[in-house]
Simulated assay, not measured.
Amino acid sequence: MTRVLVAPDKFKGSLTAAEVAEAVRSGLTAAVPGLDVRAVPVADGGDGTLAAAVAAGFERVAVTAAGPTGEPVPTAYGRRGDVAVVEMADVSGLSRLPGGRPAPLTATSRGTGELIGAALADGARRVVVGIGGSACTDGGAGMLQALGARLLDADGREIGPGGGALAQLSRVDLGGLHPALADAEIVVACDVDNPLTGPTGAAAVYGPQKGADETQVERLDRNLGRLADLVAEATGRDVREAPGAGAAGGVGFAAMAILGATLRPGIELMLDLLDFGDQVRQAELVIVGEGSLDPQTLHGKAPVGVARRARDAGVPTVVAVCGRNLLSDEQLRGAGIDAAYALADIEADPDRSMAEAGPLLEQVAAQLAVRHLSAPGRR
């Protein structure tokens, strides 16, 4: 019988989800020798998605693809049978910007399309794309170009990379789209409901996070509208207002409008992919986690998604580990979490807490074990 299931997300900046799970396992078994612990590292579609898939048994397939500013970067996708997992953050993400310098007008999603194309060429017929953490606001134009779409200016030439270049777009030609897309299912992990354009659109809401100033935001929003007009002309349907169209700088729009993708909440999609239902069966305690438990956690982040699935499966106790906890007991209970154990409770210095997160997490897990696993009659 699986007694404890450890299913954390990463502690951003200090530990991967797999490292969190291993530290928790070590602390638990040190406190309760012989304890049966199963680890299922999770992710919500952003950075860490590929690692979670690989930890769950997907094969890591190495690929060299275009980074957000066009330079080749070493990346990969996950493969299990005819299912592939693509992590946008690992190829077109903010962490891939050379020197960390934003490129709000020229950053491209081309590499994400190249990864999807590589997976399709490898026989994938279901491609799951996690689109969190992107560096671009190009409406998915680069992704589409990598998959065979032609985005042409008035002279019939391909436009350049990035959302800034969309001002030159005159025609969208889908005749050369990757043939395998016709028989493939594309599913996008998406946790936002923004439309493509307007005051709550991709440029207005997320452009500043990617380095765009006010003038550039207006320019990008106008260019995304141009793309939407021409895509509607080419396809006969307009999805710019669809919830999630503005995700990842408009990649959600391109995925729905051209690739026929469906969008699903990131953690829900990932838990299905990781066979969480089988893993959680018979667990008596589930431990969730992420670096910071805060109000954002309550809006579809991994710990809450895992906790809800665990409760639905009848797990009696769900607790969280974290770097810091900014949620009240009432908020935790509302999210299905009985208690939270934070590194900040035993190490007040945030820098030391991040630098020594592994050993500190082992201590926290040992404390957790004493409270939740040392009751008389424990099997």
Rank of each mutant, 00 (worst) to 15 (best):
R222K: 13
I159C: 09
D173S: 07
G201W: 01
Y206G: 01
Q209A: 01
S95D: 12
R222A: 15
D191M: 03
L230D: 07
D122R: 09
D191H: 02
T108N: 12
L166D: 02
L152W: 11
G163H: 02
S134L: 04
V127Y: 12
A124Q: 11
E114P: 06
G142I: 04
I131A: 02
A149F: 07
P195W: 06
S95W: 08
P102Y: 10
G142H: 02
L120P: 00
A135V: 09
D191S: 08
E185M: 12
E185I: 10
T197S: 14
R101I: 15
C136K: 01
R96H: 04
R126Y: 09
G175P: 13
Q145D: 12
E214H: 11
G99A: 01
R219A: 14
G100C: 02
L144T: 05
I131W: 02
R219L: 15
T112G: 07
G130I: 00
D122P: 12
A202E: 04
G148Y: 08
I116E: 11
G164P: 05
G142P: 01
V127A: 13
V187P: 10
S170Y: 06
Q145Y: 06
G100D: 11
V128W: 03
R219G: 15
G198S: 13
C190T: 03
R150W: 03
L166G: 04
R222G: 12
L220R: 00
P161W: 11
C190R: 06
A149T: 01
S134K: 06
A204H: 05
A202D: 03
S170A: 15
E158K: 11
G139R: 07
P208T: 11
G139D: 03
R110G: 11
A212D: 09
D213E: 11
G198E: 03
A165R: 07
N223C: 10
V129N: 10
G207I: 00
P179G: 14
P104A: 11
R219T: 15
V187E: 13
L97Q: 08
R110N: 08
R96V: 08
